[in-house]
Design a protein around this nucleic acid. Structure first.
Lengths: 140, 140
DNA sequence: TTATATGCAAATCTTTTGCAAGGAT
DNA sequence: ATCCTTGCAAAAGATTTGCATATAA
C-alpha cells in the first residue's frame, strides 16, 4: 500500500470499496495535477508513478470518486470531463476563451443544497455550480 | 416564416443571426419536447413538422441558443447533453435512477451570479446549477 | 478463498466537420 | 448579391464494455 492523501484508503473501505494502489495513486494524481484536470491529464500524472495504470481504470476510478464524494465532476459539453478534488461549496467559472477555471468559494451553496433536499426529498450524490463565459483577462 | 415562440426570430436577428425556419422550428420543439430534452429528443419533435431538418442542425442550433441565452445547457457525463428553454434561476435535480429531472426555482441564484461577476470581472454566457442523485420516489 | 478491480482492445455513441447547395436579408 | 445556414456523410473523440487475469480483504 502506498502513502497517500490522508484517509483516501479509509474512505474507500468505509464505503465498501477496495483500497487498491491504483486508486490511491489516482487520488494523489488528482490533487497533484493542478486545477480541475481532465481524465487524460490525471492519467498522465498517474503514469509518472505507475505507467501501467490504464486510462480505463482512471475513468472508472474518477467516476467512483465522484459517486462517493471524493471528487466533483465538472466541465461543459465542448471539452472532456474534468474532476475537482475540492468538494467544498464553490462555483466554477470556466473561460471559454482561455480555458482556465477559477473557483469562487460560496458557503451559502451548501445551505441551498440542504434546503432543496429537505423540501424535495432528493438525495444528492454529486453537484455542480458552473458559470461558462469569459474571464476578466480575456475581456480586455 | 413560420409562427413561433414570441420573439425568437427577433432575438436571433438582434444578435446578428438569421431567423431561419429551422431555428424557429427547433425553438418550438425545445419547448414542446417536455422536460429538459436531449438533442435527439428535440430532433424527434422537430421531425414532426419538418423531417428534413438534420441532427447536425439541431446540434448547432441548440448550442447557438445556449450562447445567446435562449436556452441552458445541462446534463451529467453519463447521458447526452440536455437543453432547458427556461433560463430563469433554478436548480436541476437529476435522478440517476429514473432519469427524471426536477426543477427547483431559487431566485437568489441570480444574485449569486451577479455578485461573482462583480467581484471577479467574469462575464457569464451560460450557467448550470445541478444536483445529481436519487429523487424521493426512487429512495423508497 | 472469493468477490472486486484491473488492463487491454474493441465497440459505442455523441458530437463535430468539410463542403456543396440553398436561402435570409 | 452576399454571406450565413443547412444537410449529408464521414471523422473525430470521449467513454464504456467484455473478458481473462490479478489481487485486496
Amino acid at each position: 500500500m502506498l502513502a497517500s492523501r490522508p484517509d483516501t484508503a479509509e474512505a474507500l473501505r468505509t464505503k465498501g470499496y477496495r483500497a487498491t494502489p491504483q486508486r490511491i495513486a489516482i487520488c494523489d494524481a488528482l490533487w497533484e495535477a493542478g486545477s480541475h484536470p481532465t481524465v487524460a491529464t490525471v492519467h498522465e500524472y498517474v503514469a509518472k508513478r505507475d505507467p501501467t495504470i490504464s486510462l480505463a481504470t482512471v475513468y472508472k476510478t474518477l467516476q467512483l470518486f465522484a459517486e462517493i464524494g471524493l471528487a466533483t465532476e465538472m466541465g461543459f459539453r465542448d471539452e472532456s470531463t474534468r474532476y475537482d478534488p475540492d468538494t467544498g461549496p464553490h462555483i466554477h467559472m470556466i473561460c471559454r476563451n482561455c480555458g482556465r477555471v477559477e473557483d469562487y468559494g460560496w458557503e451559502e451553496l451548501d445551505d441551498i443544497v440542504r434546503a432543496v433536499e429537505e423540501r424535495t426529498g432528493f438525495k444528492t450524490l454529486g453537484k455542480r455550480f458552473e458559470l461558462y463565459g469569459t474571464c476578466r483577462k480575456c475581456r480586455k
